[in-house]
């Protein structure tokens, strides 16, 4: 009997989840993709619904003959999105927190490197409230080095 009560709720949230995913894709395309501007989007899709305080990590190899732009966007209902880029020795190479939470970062490499990207949804710091959640999208654009 209890299960019968829970199942519709579960179904409702599964539907909500599917809807959230579709919204995330639309958000990534409409809001984040234009941030790449003249850079060619690599075509990969990295987006997820994140909650205040939640972190995500991404590992990617970047190559020496390319110019890159990283664009990281969060829905308006989320607090600032922080991101840091680290090398294999965990040295922080860039933090957008020191650049007024910039959404994009342009860079190139002298030699190819595997880098780690850490994305964190900061917190509104309002104890007792339901944590805000929303889409966060990570996109990479590139162009051949001139």
């Amino acid at each position: 009997m209890r299960l019968l009560k829970i199942l519709p709720i579960l179904a409702l949230f599964l539907l909500a989840s599917a809807n959230a995913d579709a919204q995330c894709k639309a958000f990534a395309k409409k809001v984040c993709l234009p941030e790449l501007a003249s850079y060619t989007h690599d075509g990969n899709y990295h987006a997820a619904v994140l909650v205040e305080g939640e972190e995500a990590e991404l590992y990617k190899t970047f190559y020496s003959d390319m110019d890159y732009r990283i664009a990281i966007c969060g829905e308006d209902k989320l607090p600032n999105i922080e991101f840091r880029i680290m090398d294999a020795n965990k040295n922080v190479l860039y933090s957008n927190k020191e650049h007024d939470y910039a959404k994009t970062w342009d860079f190139k490499l002298q030699s190819s490197q595997q880098l780690k990207l850490i994305v964190k949804v900061s917190s509104f710091n309002q104890a007792g409230d339901t944590p805000a959640s929303g889409c966060v999208s990570i996109m990479f654009g590139f162009k051949m080095k001139k």
Binding site: T40, D42, G43, N44, H46, A48, L50, V51, E52, G53, E54, E55, A56, E57, L58, Y59, K60, T61, Y63, D65, M66, P131, I138, F140, F142, M144, K145
Partner: peptide, 23 residues
């Protein structure tokens, strides 16, 4: 939630791979 870290493994996309060959 904080423990629920999410990990993305980003391989070069087919377009990036082709671009690397051309470059």
């Amino acid at each position: 939630i904080k423990q629920a870290e999410r990990i993305f493994n980003a391989l070069p996309s087919p377009l990036e791979s082709a671009m690397l060959i051309k470059s």
